[in-house]
């Protein structure tokens, strides 16, 4: 089936099998391997991207469902060498260790801050309930998002 979609501002068109997940489409067809797959049950959030501005789990979406949509992946967050304020805050606050959950965390953080530019610690923690991190204990991820909010609001 033919699909056309925009990923990180670029237009793509491909023939895909209906069973191809959006996560696999991004990874295997577009070679955007920053979107990771960590589970089978829509639980871990490593595959989070934004679809028409909303954070979604790309492992639980078929590529065909994204036909005509506007997608941003982790690769689309930085502006060239200049990191997005969320990415920058993750670096400054040691909000990542092995880096595997990080793309999903950053994309979810973008949704949290879009809907709530001044979140409390509790709201950030609640907003991250769909993302597992096994390395950081979330402590520095929460701090990173707190600082990102400040940076974006400046």
């Amino acid at each position: 089936m033919r699909i056309s979609l925009t990923v990180n501002g670029k237009q793509y068109s491909h023939d895909v099998e209906p069973r191809l997940s959006l996560a696999h489409y991004l990874r295997e067809v577009l070679n955007l391997t920053g979107t990771h797959i960590g589970c089978d049950t829509s639980s871990c959030g490593a595959c989070t991207i934004t679809l028409n501005g909303d954070a979604v789990k790309s492992c639980t979406l078929l590529a065909v469902q994204a036909d005509g949509c506007e997608i941003v992946t982790i690769e689309g967050m930085a502006n060239g060498a200049e990191l997005h304020p969320i990415q920058e805050s993750f670096k400054e606050n040691h909000g990542l260790q092995c880096g595997f959950c990080t793309p999903g965390m950053v994309m979810t953080a973008s949704d949290i801050l879009k809907n709530n530019p001044n979140p409390t610690e509790e709201e950030i923690r609640h907003g991250l309930e769909g993302n597992f991190c096994r390395c950081t204990g979330y402590h520095n991820i929460v701090k990173s998002i707190q600082q990102a909010a400040e940076k974006i609001n400046q």
Binding site: S42, G45, T48, L51, D54, A55, V56, K57, T60, L61, T108, D111, I112, G127, E129, G130, N131
Partner: peptide
């Protein structure tokens, strides 16, 4: 229900 991402879809 679910989480941010699940509620979005």
């Amino acid at each position: 229900i679910g989480d941010v991402q699940v509620r979005n879809r």
